[in-house]
Design a protein around this nucleic acid. Structure first.
Length: 853
RNA sequence: GCCCGCUUGGCGGAAUGGUAGACGCAACGGACUUAAAAUCCGUGGGCCCGAAAGGGCCGUCCCGGUUCAAGUCCGGGAGCGGGCACCA
């Protein structure tokens, strides 16, 4: 028996595809294009199962679209800048570039063994000057267009490591590596003005109808548009005002205090003359920003002694506090407090004994007796205790207050956003240098285009904490391009999210000496199907949407939305194992028992943990390379596609892999050792088909239709099930009856094309064995014969009072009367009706008859 | 706290409001084999009646509703998971 030789076969076809350049893409005006993209990997060292799943999903789409006649672009690259390379440099004395390029070489080789239909000629790495020089150019264009600014901002500062930390790197208020309490420090940083697009980025979400609803919602919440009013309160005895943002201007008559953030300019000013206030502010800055810290933290305030005047109540003065719960980043960094209708304000008012005046009356409450207890009232109601607002509903009152504030020039309706400008400066070496120069005379001077790229120096050391670019003896010292005086290079590099915000555009013209070639991006973009993990639902996908708009503004593209279709795949899970001492064990270090338990290889006790995301720390990882070594890429691909719907998490199981492996061998046996001699391609269809052959032939066509639909909807697990149903039926053909050998041969030739996107190597091999000409990957997608996908006789269910009582055979599209008569004549139906007359009979053609008695 | 999603056999999962459990995994019974692996055939939601053929009742997290008909639609609740979070 000829066993399927995976290793040889897969290598053979991979070489053949590469030799022919089967998946090279080029612009072909007039041909419909299709751009399939999976989120490019970070070169961490090895390919992991998450990658395998991601790229397999994308490859099915790419190969299917190719077969449908689309001009497909399916590229691959490397998100190659980032911190792990610097850590490796520090810990193992390997240069970040070497570490990164070595990893890329390893991972590229691993990826190539998966048989992906990628255009490798377009490969790019973001750490290559050939990529990042164009990023620098884009930055300069954005800068010139006013989309970039430099400003002082509070950042997380690690006083031990001497570096800024991202929010994600602050755990419980402490630096993730040093463990030192993080300080909020004001530093000059570079920002992209993503907030300029806050409205547009929100509004355009609605048009992204091929994005998951969930991701659109997350982005909407993240941008956090909320409308309300700005109110400017006059400070008593001073010329200036405090500007406050509120979503509840209707509760203005319930106001009992004003509060500003400890980081507010007014607090700063007052602290200069008030040591106790200065101490209070310092204390506020100390305390952590973590969830737990906030939860535990009490509302605290410091009475500045200042008073503000109520805009609508002459003579009413209200105290001004500096309060720890007011955020400088949101709104104007100041609030008015209405304790009756805001829980935080209520907590604060109770602590400092401030008045609580209810101004929204819940429906059915008596205005004379209604009072606020420990819970602020935030629901709907009627305004009272509020002069000219009395009796109005909340929405009307908001409008009225807005109108009056405007008339008094004391405020106006406005919209604020949770979204903040994107801080892109990082005090890191392994990133794209920000191409500006600081000159004492000229200020910030952009690096002239002719001096690009600003290259990273190779000779850096990592033996000191902080930014190696800053420590470099010569790199930062340059002459001002403007005045020629001694000046200093910017030593910050870009956040790596900048690199990934436009790589999909660079893929359209990856070797161009400009960031992108307009004809190429105009032809290929937007990405028709983008596939990746949901963990990028906000940052990467939002930044890319901003970048596309910025590129349009600067003339590099004509569209706003980079990704027309988005699919977020589930994660790959595996059981975890621990031995008696609690040490994590790799799956290959345990022996599985039949009852779901496990032992160590020498019989020791093992605790089987729940299935969770594969992670190195828990050792519940399976190396893709090992799976490909023993089962081949097609097996891994088939298992991942068939076991779970792609959007859900997938549990990796040895048994499931075995199942996929068995199926591949079974298909191969059917093709290599068919039960009868198979007619060559093109043989005419026999005039007569046995009943079995006829049925199988109909199933072939039904399967074409069903699989096409399933793949189109990315329901690959269903597509695989449908193909298996077909192969089960073809397998049952003996090849002896009239036409059976022909149906078997033609059915297999179609089956091979249907499974081609999923198990491409096996499909090529079967195609060749079946005498197909050319490569399978160049074959068009099969077409279903509409006449064959409907049966002449259909099974119709018969219900009595909604309960199934019989199944009857009827000619397709039988007349209603005929269906009714047949249904009422079925013995079980007669019995179930127990002699009662049918009150009503519902006939759904070709499906069901329901008799109501 | 706010927002969102999910819940179907032992397991992964199928099912345009129309025969719940396709397809597979694990399991069990059998064939082949000295034996095992591989392979092949068969059984498979629960309970009940029947020797069998077959039939009955219950069943898609819980409670209620709409409908001739609900896993699917609507209202309420529980559990699990995710996102955001002192956002005024």
């Amino acid at each position: 028996m000829s066993r399927y030789n995976v290793t040889e076969t897969e290598a053979k076809w991979q070489a053949e595809w590469e030799r022919r350049g089967s998946f090279r893409a080029s612009e072909q005006p007039g041909k419909p294009k299709y751009y399939v993209l999976e989120m490019f990997p970070y070169p961490s060292g090895r390919i992991h199962m998450g990658h395998v799943r991601n790229y397999t999903l994308g490859d099915v789409v790419a190969r299917h679209r190719r077969a449908l006649g689309f001009n497909v672009l399916h590229p691959m690259g490397w998100d190659a800048f980032g911190l792990p390379a610097e850590n490796a440099a520090r810990d193992s004395k390997i240069h970040p570039a070497k570490w990164t390029y070595d990893n890329i070489a390893t991972m590229r080789a691993e990826l190539k063994r998966m048989g992906l239909s990628l255009d490798w000629s377009r490969e790019l790495a973001t750490c290559h000057p050939g990529y990042y020089q164009h990023q620098q150019k884009l930055f300069l264009d954005f800068f010139a267009a006013g989309l970039v600014h430099r400003k002082e901002a509070f950042v997380n500062w690690d006083p031990v490591d001497h570096t800024v930390l991202a929010n994600e790197q602050v755990i419980d208020g402490k630096g993730w590596r040093s463990g030192a309490p993080v300080e909020k420090k004001k530093l000059a940083q570079w920002f992209f003005k993503i907030t300029d697009y806050a409205d547009e980025l929100t509004d355009a979400l609605e048009g992204l109808d091929r994005w998951p609803e969930k991701v659109r919602l997350m982005q909407e919440n993240w941008i956090g548009r909320s409308s309300g009013a700005e109110i400017r309160f006059q400070i008593k005895g001073r010329g200036d005002r405090i500007t406050v943002f509120t979503t509840r201007p209707d509760t203005i008559f319930g106001m009992s205090f004003c509060a500003v953030s400890p980081d507010h300019a007014l607090a700063d000013e007052l602290a200069k003359k008030d040591a106790r206030l200065a101490a209070f502010i310092a204390e506020c800055r100390q305390s952590g920003t973590s969830e737990a810290a906030i939860e535990a933290q009490e509302k605290k305030g410091y009475d500045t002694g200042l008073k503000v005047l109520h805009p609508f109540i002459p003579g009413r003065e209200l105290p001004v506090y500096v309060a720890n719960f007011v955020l400088i980043e949101y709104g104007s960094g100041a609030i008015f407090g209405c304790p009756g209708h805001d829980q935080r304000d209520l907590d604060f008012a109770r602590k400092y004994d401030l008045p609580v005046i209810p101004v929204v009356l819940p429906p059915g409450e008596d205005p004379k007796t209604f009072a606020i207890g420990d819970t602020a009232y935030t629901e709907t109601g009627t305004i009272f205790n509020s002069d000219f607002l009395d009796g109005l509903d909340i929405e009307t009152a908001k409008k009225e207050v807005g109108r009056r504030l405007e008339a008094m020039q004391a405020g106006h309706p406005t919209t604020v956003y949770r979204l903040r400008d994107w801080l892109v400066s990082r005090q890191r070496y392994w990133g794209c240098p920000i191409p500006v120069i600081h000159c004492d005379k000229c200020g910030v001077v952009p690096v002239p285009d002719k001096d690009l790229p600003v290259r990273l120096p190779d000779d850096v050391s990592f033996d000191r904490p902080g930014n190696p670019l800053d420590h470099h003896p010569t790199w930062k010292h340059v002459d001002c391009p403007n005045c020629g005086a001694k000046a200093r290079r910017e030593t910050d590099t870009f956040d790596t999210f900048v690199d990934s915000s436009w790589y999909f555009a660079r893929f359209c013209s990856p070797r161009a000496d400009v960031p992108v070639v307009r004809e190429a991006v105009d032809y290929w973009l937007s990405v028709d199907q983008y596939i990746g993990g949901v963990e990028h639902a906000i940052l990467h996908l939002l930044y890319s949407r901003f970048f596309m708009r910025a590129m349009k503004r600067t003339g590099w593209a004509k569209i706003e939305e980079p990704f027309a279709g988005l699919f977020t795949q589930g994660m790959v899970l595996h059981e975890s194992y621990r031995d008696e001492s609690g040490k994590w064990l790799y799956p290959e270090e345990v022996k599985k028992l039949g009852d779901g338990g496990a032992t160590t290889l020498d019989g020791g006790k093992v605790t089987v943990g729940r299935r969770e995301v594969m992670s190195k720390s828990k050792k519940n990882v399976i190396a893709p390379a090992a799976i490909i070594d023993s089962y081949g890429a097609d097996t891994a691909r088939l298992f991942m596609l068939s076991d779970s719907p792609p959007e859900r998490d997938l549990e990796w199981t040895e048994a499931g892999v075995e199942g996929a492996w068995r199926y591949i061998n079974r298909l191969w046996r059917l093709v290599s050792e068919p039960p009868a001699v198979l007619p060559a391609p093109g043989a005419a269809q026999p005039k007569e088909l046995s009943q079995a052959a006829e049925q199988a032939w109909r199933l072939v066509h039904k399967t074409i239709a069903a699989v096409s639909e399933s793949i189109d909807a990315l329901r690959f697990n269903v597509a695989v099930a449908q193909i298996r149903t077909l192969s089960n039926a073809l397998e049952a053909l003996t090849g002896k009856g009239p036409g059976e050998a022909w149906v078997l041969a033609e059915g297999l030739r179609i089956l091979v094309r249907l499974i081609g996107p999923m198990t491409p190597h096996l499909a090529e091999e079967m195609w060749a064995t079946l005498g197909g000409s050319g490569l399978l990957c160049d074959q068009p997608w099969p077409k279903a014969d509409p006449a064959l996908i409907v049966d002449d006789v259909v099974k119709v269910a018969v219900q009595v009072n909604g309960k199934l009582r019989a199944t009857i055979d009827l000619p397709r599209d039988a007349a209603e009367q005929a269906a009714r008569d047949a249904a009422l004549g079925a013995p079980n139906v007669v019995a179930a009706m127990a002699g009662k007359p049918a009150r009503k009979v519902i006939v759904v053609p070709n499906r069901i008859v329901n008799v109501v008695v």
